[in-house]
């Protein structure tokens, strides 16, 4: 009986610690992901501005130069656009963002920035698209600032919270 209790206590402790650390990891990853999204948007901007490629090609070209999860976002959007099984660029972009969002550490506000960007992609001339890309970029910069603030406040907290709440649960159940 004693051994069984010990095993159970260990399992609860490990599980709650893992939960705390995974939440902390989300806080840690969000600023980095926002930064690489910014560089992806900058690349896309120069692709459209200087190379004046059409959107699917520009997306694929930027995706080729990137690594990490942003590559998946752009690749997916480019694929959806290229194969023509979606009704509009906006819809393709939305689908790609949803797919990317579920695998990333981004918050709902970050996703809204991306979705808003998709509304103006591919429906207007070059200058207008550039303007919207710049707008999204500046919004992402602001999101990154708040994300950094959140990280410094919450990362350590969630680690402690996981470990200690596991300890409390074990003590209550013993």
């Amino acid at each position: 009986m004693g051994v069984l209790k010990l095993i159970g206590a260990g399992m609860i402790l490990v599980a709650s610690t893992a939960m705390g650390f995974s939440v902390a990891a989300m806080y840690r990853n969000r600023p980095a992901e926002l930064r690489s999204l910014q560089s992806a948007l900058k690349l896309l901007e120069s692709e459209i501005d200087y190379a004046s490629r059409p959107l699917p090609e520009a997306l694929a070209e930027v995706a080729r130069r990137l690594s990490g999860p942003e590559r998946i976002l752009l690749n997916r959007a480019s694929q959806l656009l290229g194969h023509g099984d979606v009704s509009s660029a906006r819809r393709a972009w939305e689908l790609a963002v949803e797919e990317y969002f579920s695998a990333s550490s981004l918050s709902g506000a970050d996703r809204d920035v991306l979705i808003d960007l998709g509304r103006s992609l591919g429906i207007s001339d070059r200058d207008d698209q550039i303007r919207h890309l710049r707008l999204a970029l500046s919004r992402l910069v602001r999101q990154e600032e708040t994300a950094e603030e959140d990280r410094s406040r919450n990362e350590r907290l969630w680690r402690y919270l996981g470990i200690l709440s596991g300890g409390v649960l074990v003590l209550i159940f013993i």
Binding site: R153, R156, Y160, L164, V168, I172
Partner: peptide, 22 residues
Amino acid sequence: FKIAGLGILISVLNMVLRQAGK
């Protein structure tokens, strides 16, 4: 002992939360 342990854990958690401004 159980109550003492709970007290220690909760006071540490309290300190952490207060430090984080919550």
